[in-house]
Computed example of a mutant assay.
Amino acid sequence: MLKKISLSILFLFISFYLNAQQYDWYLNGQAIKGFILKHNEYVGHLATSHPNGIELSLQQKLNGKKEWENLYNKPLVSYGLSYYNLQNPKLGHLIIGSAAMDLPIKRTENTALYFRIGTGLVYSTNPYDRETNNQNNMISSTITYLLQTRLTYEIKLTDKISLSPNLNITHASNGAQRAPNRGINIITANMGMSYKIKSQEDKDGRDIIPLDKNPYQIYLLITGGRNTRTLQVREPLPFFNLLLYGQKFVNPKSDWGVGLEYFHSYSLKEQIATNWFRIYDEEEITDFKRLGLLIGHELKFGKLGFISQLGVYVYNPSKSNMPVYLRFGLRYQFHKNIMAQVALKTHAATAEQAEIGIGWRF
């Protein structure tokens, strides 16, 4: 159920812009070829193949109706479906559904350089199985979460046709819903081509929809989900987090904030209870609850925001993780007081939990 809800919200965040107005629309195809990155010593036996694949996507060029579209020089929004053959029977194949934003770094009359921020869901045909595929410690769930970045150089050939070679990094992880939780990182060099399938001329004198420039905001967010932490505790257990967060407007693109966060994880509780180091410990089982202080940044695209946060535990008796954690995700402001958020919380390169939640702005 959580996976279906996450999929709906991930695509809902950006698709709100579809019904707002008409855009130029493009059909883009990509040929994919690359390699699997050996991001730690435990995945070296799998990081030996050279994946290939294809990608097909619909792209819309934003035209400046909203103020934030002009701030980012009228970026592209993409909705894609990709297929990766990982060229390794232990890893199988990946089918990826994604939504992404390509931000222009530089434009000329016939060329453009874009940087992509993308997310979505990944379907794996051959995930980890304790009995039949126990060497696949990269992908341990049929459905995993996607983070993607891309650097694209677009070359305009005609009014309708463009080449789009690019360098791409694709990361898939299950957000610690299943163990093992190593994740996979694929680096590819792609060759693409775009064809304009619908045109909408830019018109002067549009009504510019202003941004929310409230200088100070306070949020109360509750997020939750299910995760597992060890192979000994295999069944995902629920968790929830409660965050009180203060945010300050810096400029139309950025907000900075600080917060206090409470973590309540039943999988951590079960991990502590089954830790064999404590079986003969005469002391009571360590408290599993945690508190963290964090600082955060929100990169804003109108009502949609990309959040990045750095936190440190100020109360963590179990000392089950490193003292510092990170969070990356998407936030959408449905109403002046109501927002939704999906995010991934990690300790360095290891994901602890994939979160979905709702918040209230005071």
Rank of each mutant, 00 (worst) to 15 (best):
R116Y: 04
I338G: 11
V77W: 11
L157P: 06
V324S: 01
K106H: 14
N40A: 04
T48H: 13
G296F: 09
L268H: 03
I32W: 02
L344G: 07
L151S: 01
Q30L: 06
V258H: 02
Y26G: 06
Y195P: 05
N73K: 05
E131M: 11
I139C: 02
I9N: 10
R130N: 11
N85K: 03
V43Q: 04
T346H: 01
L113T: 00
R226W: 12
R290C: 01
H347R: 09
N174K: 00
H297C: 15
L330P: 02
N126M: 05
N134K: 04
I187F: 13
N137I: 07
Q217V: 10
G246Y: 06
Q271H: 13
H45I: 13
N85C: 08
Y128Q: 03
I186H: 02
F277Y: 14
L71E: 15
Q87A: 10
L344S: 06
P317N: 01
D202P: 10
G224Y: 06
A179W: 07
T125I: 06
R331Y: 05
T223C: 13
L146A: 01
F288D: 12
L86F: 01
N337W: 14
R116M: 07
A343T: 08
Q30C: 06
I208N: 15
L71M: 12
T142G: 06
K65E: 10
A343H: 06
E69D: 08
L76V: 00
N251S: 13
E131G: 00
T108P: 06
G225P: 06
S164M: 04
K198A: 15
G305C: 11
S140P: 03
L91K: 03
S78P: 05
I32D: 03
K303S: 13
R234T: 10
V43R: 03
V77G: 07
A349S: 13
R178D: 09
I358P: 04
V250R: 13
L27S: 09
S162T: 02
S15C: 14
P89C: 07
N214S: 15
N134S: 08
P180C: 03
F328N: 12
P252K: 03
F249Y: 15
L62F: 00
Y216V: 15
N85H: 08
E109Y: 13
G259A: 11
G302D: 00
I279N: 07
W276H: 12
L113R: 12
S164C: 07
G34E: 04
I358Q: 00
G118I: 04
R116A: 01
R178H: 09
T158K: 05
P165S: 01
S141Q: 05
I187T: 08
Y23W: 10
K269R: 15
M191H: 11
S267V: 14
E261I: 12
N19D: 08
I9W: 13
N185E: 08
L220N: 03
I169K: 03
A112Y: 01
L27E: 13
I96P: 08
K90L: 11
R116F: 00
T230K: 08
N168Q: 09
K106Y: 15
L326K: 04
G34I: 00
N70C: 09
A112W: 06
N137P: 03
E69K: 02
Y23H: 10
Y195N: 05
E284S: 10
I14S: 14
N85Q: 05
T119V: 12
N70F: 02
T144S: 15
N73D: 15
E109A: 12
Y83M: 05
R107E: 12
N137V: 10
I143F: 13
Y332G: 12
